[in-house]
Simulated scan of single mutants.
Amino acid sequence: MLTLIHRECGGPALETNTAVGEVCALPVDRFPFPCFTCLEDILDESEVRLSEELGI
Rank of each mutant, 00 (worst) to 15 (best):
F36N: 09
D41G: 04
S46G: 07
E53T: 14
P32M: 03
D29M: 05
R49Y: 06
D29K: 09
E40C: 08
A25S: 07
L50I: 13
G21C: 10
E22R: 08
L14C: 10
L2C: 04
C9F: 07
I5H: 02
C38Q: 06
G55K: 09
C24P: 00
A13Q: 02
E15I: 02
E52W: 09
E47S: 14
E40V: 05
E52H: 11
L50F: 14
L54N: 12
S51T: 13
E22L: 11
M1K: 15
G21D: 12
E8D: 13
D29P: 02
S46V: 00
T18A: 07
E8F: 12
C9L: 08
V20I: 14
L26S: 07
C24S: 05
A25P: 01
G10H: 07
L39H: 12
E22I: 06
G10I: 04
D41R: 00
D41A: 08
F31Y: 14
L54E: 11
L4W: 02
L39I: 06
L14M: 12
T37A: 12
L39C: 07
T16P: 08
N17C: 01
P27C: 12
L39Y: 07
F33G: 03
L4T: 00
G10T: 04
V23N: 03
D29W: 06
T37D: 11
L50P: 09
M1A: 15
C9K: 04
R49M: 13
L26R: 08
G21S: 14
E40Q: 12
D29V: 08
D44L: 10
I56C: 00
V20M: 13
P34Y: 01
R7G: 06
F33W: 05
T18R: 11
V28C: 06
E45V: 13
L43T: 07
G21Y: 10
L43D: 01
A25H: 04
H6F: 13
H6E: 11
C38L: 06
P34T: 01
E45C: 11
A25Q: 07
A25T: 03
R30M: 08
R49D: 15
N17P: 01
V48K: 08
E22C: 06
D44Y: 07
T3F: 03
V20G: 04
